[in-house]
Design a protein around this nucleic acid. Structure first.
Lengths: 221, 221
DNA sequence: CCGGCTGTTAATCCGCTGTTAATCGCCGCA
DNA sequence: TGCGGCGATTAACAGCGGATTAACAGCCGG
């Protein structure tokens, strides 16, 4: 899962990046509205954390422009405390949730999980598919009840696949959502991670659709 | 364990700070309600000692605001003797315990220990994990029955880890809960204390989860 | 002034990552 | 049915960065 953080204050931006990366996300950070709009429109982000007070182009405008362009990813807005009018304006502009500053990092993480969960249509924080269960709160994975140790990138690959259970996910899609920034690789990084996951979770769990990509769970019609 | 002390009277505030530090806690002190609210909302404190009579913003309001924001840490309220209505109001506002002034420092320490224990879900005042036992009353540690001498910070690190047994604790989290005030270190202070604990308690006791942090005891599901 | 506690620096180790390359196997085609 | 090609699989390895560890320097209290 790849998150775009839009925050002008360097200190908070770094904190956000650190916390999100620690939680297992790929993180892009951006400091001004213009760039935020560009990255959000161009890159394949799964969610956005958007501060409203920004130089260049303020957060609300960015959000409105995204929505006007049908950029649909969930957006979590950060507002100053007590600025309830900003909250209202934000929700009207198409925000999916908001959080008043100052806030607890854990709360932000929890809300973000909720947004991502909703976006993927899952009801629970624990995804389970044919014996493999993935807890999005603790980033822990188990196979038939037995805990499985995954590395950071292995977890991201698996998490993305399981959030899109039943769908065929192409190599490019995986790369875009698993790495921040632009990351062109001509090599077979994805295949290697698929391999590593298969040795840990059993060969049959991840199905390959030749010429298309990989799939987890029953194909959706 | 990091405690926030909110008390406007300088003399008592200093006494509290001294006693708590001697008991092995990291202590932040704050003299007025506004600041108290800010610190409590922002910093990672494990418990609060809150005087009700405060300038700016009184203690009850601070507490209510925290609870409204879902700031959940245990709060121990200090009230004037015989002000039973304050006690009732305090409990209603979300206090976890109260203590009438004047009080014995030992009683405050005992009540605080009880709060911290409850918060971490422990039943006893002595935490024991795979041969290592930590007595929260005396701040003494032993390994397989044999007493182990720890320094102040070593004790705090170990105590925090054992209060969160089974959970992975990140370096940042440790730093936040072990030092009062803001304390940004770019160096590997935490690793060093982990090392020192490992040499005293055995290498296997503290497990490292690469890229995430450290853990003590069996991973919780 | 001494000794222990702290925190910093720096050398080293080790697991993760991504690359290369060899092999496999599916599929189309003759 | 056999062959060739291409995509997928798999193993092996080198570089990097996080983690470990030792050694030292500053500080504080006695």
């Amino acid at each position: 899962m790849r998150i775009l953080v839009v925050e002008d204050e360097a200190r908070l931006r770094d904190q956000l990046q650190a916390a999100l990366e620690e939680a297992g996300y790929a993180v892009d950070t951006v400091a001004d509205g213009e760039l935020a709009h560009f990255v959000g429109s161009t890159e394949a982000c799964d969610a956005v954390v958007l501060d409203l007070g920004l130089p260049q182009l303020d957060g609300l405008s960015v959000l409105r422009r995204w929505r006007a362009e049908e950029v649909a990813m969930p957006v979590l807005i950060l507002t100053a405390r007590d600025a309830w009018h900003e909250k209202v304006a934000g929700m009207d502009a198409g925000a999916d949730d908001y959080l008043a500053k100052p806030f607890r990092m854990e709360e932000l993480l929890a809300r973000l999980r909720a947004l991502l969960r909703r976006a993927s249509g899952a009801a629970s924080a624990v995804l389970e598919i044919s014996g493999v269960s993935l807890d999005t709160r603790t980033a822990r994975v188990s196979l038939d009840g037995a805990p499985v140790k995954l590395t950071g990138h292995e977890y991201r690959v698996l998490s993305y696949l399981m959030h899109h259970a039943g769908a065929v996910v192409s190599r490019t899609e995986l790369i875009e959502h698993i790495y921040a920034q632009d990351y062109d690789r001509d090599s077979n990084t994805v295949e290697v991670f698929i391999r590593r996951l298969r040795t840990k979770l059993g060969d049959a769990f991840i199905v390959t659709e030749r010429g298309l990509g990989y799939r987890v769970g029953e194909p959706c019609a």
